[in-house]
Design a protein around this nucleic acid. Structure first.
Length: 745
DNA sequence: GATTTACGCCTTTTT
DNA sequence: GGCGTAAATC
């Protein structure tokens, strides 16, 4: 029984209780994933449950992948049968692709991501004659999504509207839904909602899935929204071998409709439920756990629990007060440069993605390698999205958002005005965008020149549509590239950016080839792209990882920096007015702190630049920072960051200062000094711009974007020097020396 | 009519 | 600092 021997009594109980509903309240670092994976292994190995009868649902692809590989390591799965481990969303897609027709969903529906959704909303606003000043597409979309997630239809929305603005939004919402249906498209919310409706309205289908999955596990149950909750209910009608795992203190997705009630009222929903608490934390030292617990204890809306750890002591939680954001990021980079052990992974966690840039710059200055999770993922690159739009439209000609996107990219003489005309035609005759194009051709509604371009475009799309039925993804992509001379026009640009785009296209072709290897259909390829798109570029081996607090959930790191601990940033300004939202911010802080195993350092800046404006604004320390008992904190601020001047040139060293007197400068004095002397921020090294003269093959250089590289070739001279440089990780780049902002190293 | 430039606006978090 | 929309120019 080696499997069970690796678990503590509570974990073991959670694994062995395979029959009936089970709620596992798992504190941070208590071995939650371990329990789920062992439970799956146990079901298969000791209870003889066929793997394909197990369904495990997680929130993110990252978590699903992690779980899959851990299960694979644990059990040798017989034959091809696999437990189905996926996110809610991919589960729903699969169900809908198979059975969606039962609720009138076209087989080849497109999935609209947030960008597509925004385009639809904007089109709706335009249609209703609303300008951006009156309603902001983003805000409208979030209201719509909120309504959808709470089961409110446009009519309900309209009826409960108490102000003119909401009434207008209800109108947009109504139109938005109609446009999606017209485009044979569903958004992320629909994926869940339609799956629920399918199972509600078709008892036979529901029964089939119930029988297929007698064992169901749900991770991060505190983050499930209403639709996800319904879905789970619908899947557990004939059996209730349902195991949900969650932690109220880590609920951080209420803005997406997550409802803690799902976890709090589990016993009501499943009266036979057993509850098991996992309260031993295996991850963090006592100091870290105490600090985190002290913070989250300030939340009123919580039942409360006490985590304990056997890892007594540990260094105090560090805190650092910087003059400004730049100094804060340099402190972090500096710490990592001199203190990080070779095999000690570190994470820099922040509230908003926008904060990452400072850290990227500082880490690059110190020559430290890092990995940013989130930000712009591969599938979100413009050129990749363009090509995916070709594929989506090829499969589903009704997909007007995709059609509109590719209509003139690359430029083929169908400009803005033409697109608007077509939209008008579509609107007047209530046609899809595709049919409106046909209409324009048929009745010669546009100048001959434009009609010819449209004719060519329609022919291309018809060809692609024909290929979509059976042709491989690669074949379609190649045809698109050939026909549009996409790559050629990029080559003509000759800029490094264009080269990067070509590389991305190459990468997409590789992905298509891989997909072919897995014998996927076009629609499976697109589903994958739509659902995996996001922050799945987490590299568990990266020495330094940068990511938001949200994406850090479920991960752990020996060293954690929690940065930007300021009012307005960590309790985010948008949440300051709302007590519930504030508590969520506090949980977010808790999630961040509990990622740390050995070292946790909290940093803040006394002044910060917003939107890269000239002016820096002063800030107040985060209330969460003040909620950490002072006895658990060690202030790291006082010993660092004092400037020195050298040879008339501004040159600032960033090193610990031996001088006792200088070392005693308090943060306040630092701040005064800073405000009194503009430019007196510590910078590790001043860059000397290079004109290219004097750079020869073999020289090492540093580029602000690509990092370190080696000069391979130098052409021309003086101002006109062109350099070919190889940047590890970015490939070969041709750069004009005078623009490239290179630094010789 | 299309491309270029100026301006203004913003930004939470994610499947 | 980066984007998209609105004005300015070719």
């Amino acid at each position: 029984m080696s499997l069970l021997d690796q678990l503590n009594p509570q974990q073991r109980e959670a694994v062995e209780n395979t029959e009936g509903p089970l709620l596992i309240l798992a504190g941070a670092g208590s071995g939650k994933t371990r329990v789920i994976t062992y439970r799956i292994a146990y079901l298969v190995e000791y209870r003889g449950v066929p793997p394909e009868n197990v369904l495990a649902v997680t929130f993110t692809n990252k978590a699903a992948d992690e779980m899959r590989s851990r299960v694979e390591r644990l059990v040798r799965l017989p034959g091809l049968a696999q437990p189905w481990i996926s996110t809610f969303h991919s589960f729903c897609v699969r169900v809908l692709r198979r059975d969606g027709e039962r609720i009138g969903l076209p087989r080849d529906f497109s999935i609209y991501d947030e960008d597509d959704q925004l385009r639809v909303v904007k089109a709706c606003l335009r249609q209703l004659g609303l300008t951006k000043r009156e309603l902001q597409a983003r805000a409208v979309l979030s209201r719509i999504s909120h309504a959808k997630n709470h089961g409110r239809k446009p009519e309900d929305f309209y009826l409960s509207a108490t102000d003119p603005m909401s009434e207008r939004i209800a109108q947009v919402y109504d139109l938005y839904e109609k446009e999606l249906r017209k485009a044979h498209a569903v958004d992320f919310d629909d994926l869940l909602l339609f799956a629920v409706r399918l199972l509600q309205e078709n008892a036979d289908v529901a029964l089939r899935y119930n029988e297929r999955y007698p064992y169901i596990l749900v991770d991060e149950y505190q983050d499930t929204n209403r639709a996800q909750y319904e879905l789970v209910r619908l899947l557990t009608q004939t059996q209730q071998n349902l195991c949900v795992v969650g932690d109220e203190d880590q609920s951080i997705y209420s803005w997406r409709g997550a409802d803690i009630r799902n976890i709090v009222e589990f016993e009501k929903d499943y009266p036979q439920a057993r509850i098991i608490r996992l309260e031993q934390n295996y991850r963090s030292t006592q100091s870290i756990l105490d600090a985190a617990s002290a913070v989250v204890a300030n939340n009123r809306y919580r039942k409360g629990k006490t985590l304990w750890t056997a890892r007594q002591g540990g260094p105090k939680v560090g805190s650092y007060e910087a003059f400004d954001g730049e100094n804060e990021s340099l402190f972090v980079a500096d710490w990592l440069a001199r203190r990080q052990e070779p095999d000690e992974r570190a994470a820099i966690l922040y509230r908003t993605n926008a904060q990452s840039r400072l850290y990227e710059e500082s880490l690059r200055r110190y020559g430290l390698k890092y990995n940013v999770v989130g930000a712009i993922s591969f599938y979100e690159r413009a050129e990749v999205k363009d090509l995916l739009a070709y594929l989506k439209a090829a499969l589903n000609l009704a997909d007007s958002v995709s059609l509109l996107r590719i209509l003139n990219s690359p430029p083929r003489g169908i400009g803005e005005t033409t697109a608007q005309k077509i939209e008008e035609i579509a609107l007047e005759a209530n046609l899809s965008f595709w049919d409106a194009l046909g209409q324009a051709l048929e009745h010669k509604l546009l100048p001959a020149r434009t009609l010819a371009a449209i004719q060519a475009f329609r022919e291309l799309m018809e060809d692609l549509h024909g290929m979509a039925a059976e042709g491989s993804v690669s074949a379609i992509l190649k045809k698109v590239l050939e026909n549009t001379r996409y790559i050629e026009s990029l080559e003509e640009e000759g800029t490094p950016e264009a080269e990067g785009r070509i590389e991305n296209i190459q990468e997409l072709l590789n992905a298509a080839a891989d997909s072919y290897e897995r014998s996927e259909t076009l629609s499976q390829f697109l589903d994958h792209a739509a659902l995996v798109s996001d922050a799945d570029n987490y590299d568990e081996n990266a020495r330094i990882t940068l990511m938001t607090l949200h994406s850090a959930k479920g991960l752990e790191f020996p060293v954690v920096f929690l940065v930007g601990m300021e009012e307005g940033l960590l309790p985010h300004s948008r949440s300051l007015m709302d007590p519930q939202a504030l508590e969520e911010e506090r949980r977010l802080c808790y999630v961040g702190m509990t990622r740390a195993q050995n070292v946790l350092i909290l940093t803040r800046a006394l002044a910060r630049r917003h939107y890269a404006s000239q002016m820096e604004e002063g800030s107040r320390a985060s209330r969460f920072l003040r909620e950490v008992p002072p006895a658990l904190l060690e202030d790291l601020s006082e010993r660092r960051g004092v400037r020195q001047e050298q040879q008339g040139e501004r040159h600032y060293e960033y090193e610990p200062v031996e001088d006792e007197e200088a070392a005693r400068v308090t943060s306040v004095e630092n701040a005064q000094r800073f405000f009194g002397m503009p430019g007196a921020r510590p910078e590790p090294r001043i860059r000397k711009p290079l004109t290219g003269a004097g750079l020869a093959p073999g020289n090492r250089v540093k580029h602000p974007k690509f990092g370190y590289g080696t000069v391979l070739r130098s052409e021309g001279k003086g101002e006109e020097t062109k350099l070919t440089i190889s940047f590890p990780g970015f490939g070969m780049k041709k750069l004009m020396a005078k623009y490239a902002d290179l630094e010789r190293v």
